[in-house]
Design a protein around this nucleic acid. Sequence first.
RNA 1: GGCCGGGUGGCGAAGUGGCCUAACGCGGAGGUCUGCAAAACCUUUAUUUCGUGGGUUCAAAUCCCACCCCGGCCUCCA
Length: 488
Amino acid sequence: MQIQLFNSKGRQKEPLRLREPGRVGLYVCGVTVYDHCHIGHARVMVVFDVVVRYLRACGLQVTYVRNFTDIDDKIIQRANGLGIAIAALTERYIAAFHQDMAGLGVAKADVEPKATEHLPEMVAMIDRLLAKGLAYTGGGDVYYAVDRFATYGQLSGKQLNELQAGSRVEVDGCKENPLDFVLWKGAKAGEPSWPSPWGEGRPGWHIECSAMSCKYLGESFDIHGGGMDLLFPHHENEIAQTEGSTGHPWVRYWLHNGFVNVISDSGEREKMSKSLGNFSTIADLLAHYPGEVLRLFILNSHYRSPLDFSGELLEAARHGMDRLYTALAAAKKQLGALPEPISLAALSAEPDAPLWQEVAEPFCLAMDDDFNTPQAIAVLFELARTINRSVTLLAQGGAVEQSDLRNRVNLLRQLAAVLGLLLEEPEHYFHRQNSDGGEDARIETLIQQRLAARQARNFAEADRIRQQLAEEGITLQDSKEGTTWRRS
RNA sequence: GGCCGGGUGGCGAAGUGGCCUAACGCGGAGGUCUGCAAAACCUUUAUUUCGUGGGUUCAAAUCCCACCCCGGCCUCCA
């Protein structure tokens, strides 16, 4: 198994070579907590959740760090607008974030540091930059002098002179160069501030990621990820800060995910963003779709490609997810209970097993190739079909190797789990949402009434009941063993 | 203006020199099953075709050139 990943630094696929064998340090830029998260945020979180899940499935020990930006202009503005304390605002949206992530099946990071809890680390780094002559003070602020960092622009492939030529950056009075960025902002009246050698103030945006990643992952680590839009200037600035202050290489692999686009009312395709106001929040979507449907929708495109968002596409993803769970449900009926999934590591220990070659290997090869989740998902669907085929055969009285079916189901759940899919019991998935016990009992009663009608060959009444349930979004499925129901 | 991506069937989306007469999913059509359905299964749904026009090669969706579109970044943004 050799994982290849597309390194934004250098813009090509490279084999993943770790600093320390068996251990991976991963930092992903989290969210600024001043509002609800939208599907664009969901994409980064799901994508890197899968990266972590896969690396762990490969037996690597991953330390995953994902920050919260809990102090910045927009947060202050928003809190003032609402007339509440900053901490009250950020706590509210951190809680909302966690709830969204739980709904999406995104595991918590190992460390979720907050900027406001790392002021000393940031101040220390700024201090080092000043001592090294890479930063300068002006009007109570501290700025980074980008032209003193030799490789500035290397990550994003930008030349300093080109940037300046086409620059639309407003020239700040205290900046020596319009591209210089602020490390420390001097306090203004009515704003929260912290003490520093340069007076009261607060940190610039970029410094937190440098300081916090170094604290939790060391001054060099393996992978840093985030949305494509962070590549410049955020990540460029992070490099300048970190390597400028430590004097040695920092991040080995940069991973950037593509954007979520929305087709606007006028038919234009545009990036989904808070500033454009064209977003669907995760919470809104989770009210209508199971989290795994959103995951399948996101993972069905490669993480670096742009992703168009629409209700129809989400609906298609839902049907796809139903299909996977249907295979699971059918197998469960045959096997009595779903077997405990075997681990990927245990499987790979027996690479000669036919199932490994037929299924697990193609899956892993796809994932090894820069996390090609669409291809990996294809393997899942093919596996689901072989399961359905066996179940169909059994139902027709054919002979099927029970152990083979069991192994396939095992494998389906195990591989799907790497993508954070098929984590529920099928009946829970199909009975989901607003199905409290009373609701379920009511549906069961109607099914019994319909059964009685059918036995009396009163098909008009049976169909009436079925139609009534259909109008509630409930589909019935008759079989020799009885009738089951699902929400669609 | 500079710099990056991308244009594949009705839709989404893999594939980036021969295994591609193009995976997989959604949708459509026909069949099996069913009282009828639903689901599943089977068959089928791009055959000078992978934005357009040239070129390289024994061989190109895949490499090169030109052109046309689309998106992103260059300012906060996942």
